[in-house]
Design a binder for these strands. Structure first.
Lengths: 242, 242
DNA sequence: CACGCTCAGTGCGCCAGCGCACTGAGCGCG
DNA sequence: CGCGCTCAGTGCGCTGGCGCACTGAGCGTG
């Protein structure tokens, strides 16, 4: 396990030209992101934006009855805390670390200061927010129209894209709470996928064996979100290779 | 039926200080918005942003199998075409007129020009986009967790808030396609509401008789979205009363 | 090394919403 | 004024996912 950390592991930060990155660099603070940590609660005032490098953060909502449902996930392709620069400063959802790792965080005022320069950072952040909109819209559609198995495939693929390995450390219980379904439902669907040779399961570990198989079984939502994400951020130049 | 139209009927435009509104005013073009008109298709390049005054526009997604689901609605509180200033220029969803009326449209380049002045218009548009995020996230949760009847109540209330009357011109078929459910399901749920005295139905017309009753039967999602919307746009000063 | 806790697998009854097929009612148009 | 089309209401069997209760398996800890 490498201990080398760099802000460039976050795609948004890596896409900044040197002139824009330099003033930011000193303000970025590397923080460990342990599984389960809550970055913000509904209505709580945000103090930092988080640029994930190796962690994955889940944006979700908790209903009055205590049920949860993920509305979007954020990995090294994005940033947690768009409401800081969008102007709301808070949201009605929560953000929780779904896969442990690290992130660089940036204090609210520094972020705003740079955002208001109206340079590439602003452009990047707005584009990313646009991608987030697509992700949430697609989640809404997927929740309405697609089967649990399709959604599980989509979710596995999206999570996989944010990880360096093909193995995710994740209980079925946790997956279920992300998808907003029963744990037993996940057991069922995962059992099918395992029998089909797409994944292999081991107490808290899911290894993806056949990515193509998952893609076949997933609904269109995965492809739509992925395509939109790359479209929105494709024409940016990277300071260094990612 | 009044024929007096004014950009001030749109809340975002009405919130602009005179100095920012003036240069825009001449560029705003009043356009009729007939029921069913498609403002943009998935992937199509947008040429205008639309500021609804008396119409309601539905943002929705059409799946590969042809099924539809609304992800958000836009009335006089908002603007259609956030991807113009967010930088994507297009989205994977569609926008269709759900209730006929009027809107003011603004050509893409004029909008960008004003947006890039980084004045109150920019701030308003970003805040509105933040509210749109909330709306989509809540739709995702609602689709996952709440019953058809709860969703119908939420949807009726949100639509009602965007209309001057308590009567919406709307077939059950259309409502069903918005909610992404069967027409029969809407018939069922609407029947319950009618028996409870909340609404009264007439071939293509729904009159809301008991708003409070609907609020009681709706899920929390309605209140969450409404509250967030007013929070985000509450501290803006209106040039003229709305 | 074995105890205990957490996690995965399974069965069963239940219900919301779907798909389909058909009837009846209201409105607009000729 | 009545014909025809569109829209709403209803029944019925089906199924995906839920709620609950319980078993068995794996891993960490003492």
């Amino acid at each position: 396990m490498s201990t080398a950390h760099s802000p460039n592991q976050n795609h948004l930060l890596a896409a900044l030209p040197t002139a824009e990155f330099e003033p930011l660099a000193a303000q970025l603070e590397l923080v460990p992101m342990p599984l389960g940590q809550m970055l913000y609660e509904p209505g709580g005032q945000l103090q930092h934006a988080y640029f994930p490098t190796t962690c994955i953060v889940s944006l979700h909502y908790v209903t009055e009855s205590g049920a949860t449902a993920e509305t979007a996930g954020v990995g090294s392709e994005g940033v947690v805390g768009v409401s800081l620069f969008m102007g709301g400063n808070t949201t009605s959802s929560s953000a929780v670390v779904q896969t442990a790792g690290h992130a660089y965080r940036l204090e609210k005022h520094k972020l705003l200061q740079e955002f208001n320069r109206a340079g590439l950072l602003q452009r990047l952040l707005l584009r990313y927010t646009q991608a987030l909109l697509t992700q949430m819209a697609q989640t809404a559609v997927c929740n309405r129209r697609h089967t649990l198995e399709q959604q599980l495939c989509r979710w596995l693929l999206m999570t996989l894209d944010r990880l360096p390995t093909n193995e995710l450390v994740m209980t079925q219980e946790l997956v279920a709470s992300m998808l907003g379904v029963r744990r037993e439902g996940v057991t069922d669907a995962a059992g099918n996928l395992q029998r089909a040779g797409c994944i292999s399961y081991r107490r808290g570990h899911i290894a993806v064996l056949d990515r193509t198989g998952l893609e076949t079984r997933a609904c269109e939502c995965y492809a739509v979100v992925k395509k939109e994400m790359s479209r929105l951020l494709s024409d940016v130049q990277y300071r260094q290779g990612i």
